[in-house]
């Protein structure tokens, strides 16, 4: 309790700066991705700063509609979820402000807190009463539950080897060169993690939730103005946070801000490039995909972790 109450204004200010930076970086990556995708498809594409313009425009819209209490609160949930996740992950080890509130809990807290924003958004979408929004949530939950399986298995393998749930501890355990990165230390679990990360980022072929042309952008269908702006910001920082988590778990974390930015970018791009190549799955195809190869890799990863542990002892 005291740990929270003792926080001074200065620390909170640092955290706020870090959050703003992360949102900005997330929006920038969003812009880059749009550009990259356009180039892959031989289009010119929008400028990389287009997301900033979009968000700014949305924040300055003066009127909006509402469908009810939950519809109103959903963007708040979304933003709190995104920022909360970011704050619970130490982005750069040992750097004040960039460790956020990670003293509150370990990696399990981070994973479970991810659902907070999703849940809020889903509820808001539900209250909008738009069928597309609800269909998208149904798909999203189906897919989420399936990619969480290989991800959990990879995480279990990791914790089995590292012996701690603490993110700081996990980063420490990977210190000392690329060879110690968990991605290479236990490649089977690493592959499971990489594949499930694709689902987490929801780029094609796993973009069944937003699914343009199919259920036009899904959950946020009914949203506009500040609400949509908050959602976009929340989504931007959520993307950064997820990538940062992946970086911490599998790529040895980061010791400086540039390293963190690069690693986050690379992790991001992995999903984007896969998405550029594969067309969208149907919902059940996506579910089945994660329950097959990624899951086998995850199980094999645990077996490998147990074997290594056994050999070490």
């Amino acid at each position: 309790m005291q740990a929270v109450l003792n926080l001074d204004i200065g620390y909170l200010g640092l955290c706020a700066l870090s959050v703003i930076g992360a949102i900005a970086y997330g929006l920038l990556i969003g812009g880059i991705i749009r550009k990259v995708m356009a180039r892959i498809q031989s289009r010119i594409g929008p400028p990389v700063w287009q997301p900033y313009l979009d968000v700014a425009k949305l924040f300055f819209q003066r009127t909006s509609i509402r469908h009810g209490m939950m519809f109103y609160l959903a963007p708040v949930f979304r933003t709190v979820g995104g920022i909360g996740i970011y704050l619970l992950i130490p982005i750069v080890a040992g750097m004040p402000g960039l460790a956020g509130f990670s003293f509150n809990g370990d990696v399990l807290l981070v994973i479970y807190f991810m659902f907070f924003g999703c849940l809020g958004m889903a509820l808001g979408a539900g209250e909008s009463g738009h069928p597309h929004a609800i269909i998208a949530v149904s798909r999203g939950l189906s897919q989420m539950s399936s990619y969480e399986l290989p991800f959990s298995l990879a995480l279990i393998a990791l914790v089995a080897q590292v012996g701690t749930f603490s993110i700081g501890g996990i980063i420490e355990a990977q210190a000392g060169g690329i060879g110690n990165w968990y991605l290479f230390m236990n490649p089977l679990a690493g592959i499971a993690g990489l594949l499930s990360f694709l689902g987490m980022q929801m780029y094609s072929p796993f973009n069944i939730v937003l699914a343009p042309q199919e259920i036009p952008i899904g959950p946020p269908t009914e949203y506009n103005s500040t609400f949509l702006g908050l959602m976009m910001s929340g989504r931007a920082i959520f993307g950064v946070a997820k990538s940062a988590l992946f970086m911490n778990l599998f790529l040895g974390g980061a010791t400086s801000i540039p390293e963190a930015m690069i690693k986050i970018f690379v992790v991001y791009m992995w999903a984007v490039f896969v998405g550029a190549v594969f067309p969208r799955f149907r919902a059940e195809q996506s579910v089945r995909f994660f329950l097959r190869w990624p899951t086998w890799f995850g199980l094999a990863g645990i077996a490998l972790a147990m074997l290594m542990k056994h050999l070490a002892s």
Partner: peptide
């Protein structure tokens, strides 16, 4: 293996929630 400060988490979430709720309430459309 791990640690948890439930009160801290609650304080963080409630704090953030208050900030953004105030935002949409007072600065929103």
């Amino acid at each position: 293996l791990g640690y948890l400060n439930a009160f801290g988490v609650m304080a963080m979430v409630m704090g953030l929630f208050a900030v953004f709720f105030a935002w949409v309430l007072f600065l929103g459309p």
